[in-house]
Amino acid sequence: MDLTVRVKRFNPEAEPRQPYWQDFPISIDENATVLDTLIHIREMVDGTLSLRCSCRSAICGSCAMRINGHAGLACKTKASDAMDKDGMIKVEPAGNMPVVKDLVVNLDLFWRKIVQVEPFLKPQGPEPEAEYVVPNEAMMHLSGVTACIMCGACVSDCTVLEVDPNFLGPAALAKAYRFTADPRDGDGEGVSRERLRKLSDYGGMWDCTRCGECVQACPKGVAPMDRIMALREQAIKAGFDNNNGARHTEAFTESVGHSGSLNELQLPVKTVGITNIPALLGFLPVGLRALTHGKLPPLVHKNIANVEFVRKLHHKLEEHQPEK
């Protein structure tokens, strides 16, 4: 099959030090992966093309890059699937990390964040005589998150990291969940209080926008965003709810549980806290602008029809929340 691979290239030693696109028209087997096309180019066309790869079978996590604008593993993506109708595949280095050369990025930031969440068991209770014994069921649900191969695809496409390198990011937060959800970690009840406290800080679990990019990018089904949502649930349950993120979630659920719909006027107030005068004043300019444009939500919040049923349901399901 004939196709063109458009590669975003960068050579730090060449002048000007600017990335540029280069097209490689090639002919390759129907079953080739995107990685095969790149290796073909490196071996047959241009030996200066730099990329990382090792296992070629979606195990080692070396070959994460952006393919047609979205991160994934080059060795797990078939060229015939990635090609557009004109036979073109666009390949760029992973995002949110500095480019070393061509498709090779510097993963320091990725690893720093993994180290930051202390990716090892920290049990607090008394040590058992022999090994820790845990029931199978208590570990099975962790198989998804332990499948992470540290490829960095999620970090590449994270919308928050794009504007704020301080954010812990999807891979590290998913890794943190791997421990907070482990019954051996934390206190005697298996609650990882210390971790949850730290993860509730600025740059932690509440900074995620729930954009889903990491779920889409992850080649291993780790679904980092879903783990972050689970972390939030754990944190609220463990009592770390004195922050805007937790208050926002609680106030939102309260509002819907009470009236069936969202009270948009009350939500920001309850989120920053009714006593937080500076933050409340901060809403004023936006609120005034909305008011003069006839855009403010209705001042009297109406209930939906048959709201009684929703209230009862809320009551019932809030009381019987499943445990960790």
């Binding site: 949502m229 649930e233 979630t249 659920t253 349901l313 809320h314 929340q321």
Partner: peptide
């Protein structure tokens, strides 16, 4: 998606 992070079942 906000409510779901506290109580997905609800």
């Amino acid at each position: 998606g906000v409510m779901q992070e506290k109580n997905q079942l609800f």
